[in-house]
Design a protein around this nucleic acid. Structure first.
Lengths: 334, 334
DNA sequence: GTGAAAGCGCTAACAA
DNA sequence: TTGTTAGCGCTTTCAC
């Protein structure tokens, strides 16, 4: 591969001049500039970004650490981050932790070692302590989609008002007339969604019995299994709130496979608003998370962090919203 | 950030010795090794991978260029590539081209400039000529999920027998008794799927009239629109083959929104077998592409390329398979 | 078992 | 307008 030096000797100048000419710094005569550019073309010169990064201490690269891109909640976010990064001249390293903290930690350390300019970390992908350690050394990190209370210390983050999300789900079902509801959620990462839901029920004097609380693990299958238990319960609920759409899809399938109708027999409401949710049968009522906005704001915040000590606020709580489709309706007569 | 040199002066040795001690090369006494390791701990030493890469000419990083991670066909592949890469000590740069060749080219050039060790390129993400240019300079690239005939020159690639995929779809529908079928596909990237379908019909003396050939653009919406046109056609088909599941979902929705039943009124068959396909209503019959295998083989092939001139074969054609679910059945009586 | 020296390809500060 | 010098932090070769 051709280097600056190669061009320099070919043209009969010095590497510095070549560098200046190539990046259009003013101090090169037009004549030599022409010859240099031409020669660079001929030799197929490509600047070595490694060398450049080493001396500048900047890589124009950022890391994106998440549980797994195979979960349909993340691709939209990843896309938005990458696009925003790209507009700033950045590329993005995608790192799946597979919900394994050791793996998340390894990835983060590697990212630090390779001098990425900053990292966006999604919830559930790594032990908060590991993030904190790097952040406190001055490494730019922004948290995305974590529960606000998950990290001990104040850190830059953009997240969603999950308690509100849970509340919205409850309000919707209550308004429809439901009295016997159930929830499927992942503990402890989704406890806020649970609390918002439960508390809203409580305020309406509605109980949420133990048997109506099922844990899932953000997979479709776990939603399916959890819903099965709920259906078989002696006190079958008339509505189910699954704290992710992915689990809601599983739940819906379980209900339908049991020979019941959604929403006539059991209403189902999700949370996330992943793309497919609008296109299944029946279309899923859900609490939407503005994923693109989430990603965009996280990335912009990270860039502010990278540029220097930014003005507050360093954290942002985004409001979810209810999207009523056809998987929820009034409870059946009994 | 602490450097080798910092440890060296602290311990009273030289940087070379520190380096040797840290990577367990034999020639350091146990005593000094202990002191060095301890000191490295204390100073929080992290090797600078940039510097290391610059001298070694290796970055242990690979690029993954694709149209857009938001299309649900890709996340599973991305995950598998990243996992395989990770097992080899590699990280992965994710690059969306958004079906824009200029953008794809920019990304590829940047990847080359930053000395990634190799790149995996998915179909439809960049102009083949740009790939070829880099490949011919000796840069390791493997093509993934391209039509075999899309690239002029023989290049390393792992792909799917798309003609067979189209044939399988046709065979299935014919076996069910369909005589009036339609296809929705994206031209020209999916022409092989089309040809396989059409030719199989022809062999069974079945025509595929112009009106029954619709173009889509790999989006759900385009599948929806294409299906609408088919439904409104005076010669409504009894079965639709959409060459991606994503378009098939759109088509299914269009059919259902028109008040028709899938599969009783119209059978629908897709191609890809994305995760959700098994979980919608009705579950989608489809031609499955072994995505994880595709990704794994592409990555392994790339590593062979990176290690040096590998043994043939440098290209692999993976066989698709029919998965019968409930979106296809015998045609309605007329 | 340890060190000195050179160099990866580039940038940046300062001279000429 | 152009050149010189000194690194960035590491690895590698060879000498002691």
């Amino acid at each position: 591969m051709a280097r600056l030096e190669d061009i320099a000797v070919a043209v009969g100048v010095t590497a510095t001049t070549v560098a200046n000419a190539l990046k259009g710094r003013g101090n090169v005569s037009d004549a030599t500039r022409m010859r240099i550019i031409e020669c660079a073309q001929e030799l197929g010169y490509r600047p070595n970004e490694l060398a450049r990064s080493l001396v500048q201490g900047k890589t124009f690269t950022l890391g994106f650490l998440l549980p797994t891109i195979a979960n349909p909640f993340y691709p939209e976010i990843a896309e938005a981050i990458e696009r925003t990064a790209s507009e700033h001249g950045y590329q993005m390293l995608l790192c799946n932790s597979f919900y394994d903290f050791a793996r998340g930690r390894q990835h983060l350390e590697r990212l630090v070692n390779r001098w990425v300019d900053g990292v966006i970390v999604m919830g559930s992908s790594i032990d908060p302590a590991d993030i904190l350690a790097q952040f406190q050394r001055g490494f730019p990190i922004v948290l995305c989609d974590w529960q606000e209370n998950e990290i001990a210390i104040q850190m830059p983050q953009v997240s969603v008002d999950f308690r509100m999300a849970g509340a919205l789900a409850a309000q919707h079902l209550i308004a429809l007339g439901h009295r016997h509801m159930a929830i499927i959620f992942d503990e402890p990462q989704q406890s806020l969604r649970f609390e918002g839901f439960r508390d809203t029920l409580l305020e309406a004097d509605l109980a949420l019995p133990e048997a109506m609380i099922q844990v899932g693990h953000s997979t479709l299958e776990s939603g399916y299994n959890a819903a099965q238990k709920l259906i078989e319960s002696p006190t079958r609920p008339t509505a189910i709130f699954a704290t992710t759409d992915w689990m809601a899809l599983g739940a819906m399938q379980a209900v339908q496979n049991a020979g019941l109708q959604v929403p006539q027999d059991i209403s189902i409401i999700g949370l996330d608003d992943i793309t497919v949710s609008a296109h299944i049968r029946p279309p899923l009522t859900t609490i939407a998370i503005p994923k693109v906005q989430l990603a965009f704001e996280a990335t912009e915040l990270l860039f502010r962090l990278i540029k220097g000590t930014p003005e507050p606020p360093l954290s942002r709580l985004i409001q979810p919203s209810l999207i009523v489709r056809q998987s929820t309706t009034v409870p059946p007569d009994i």
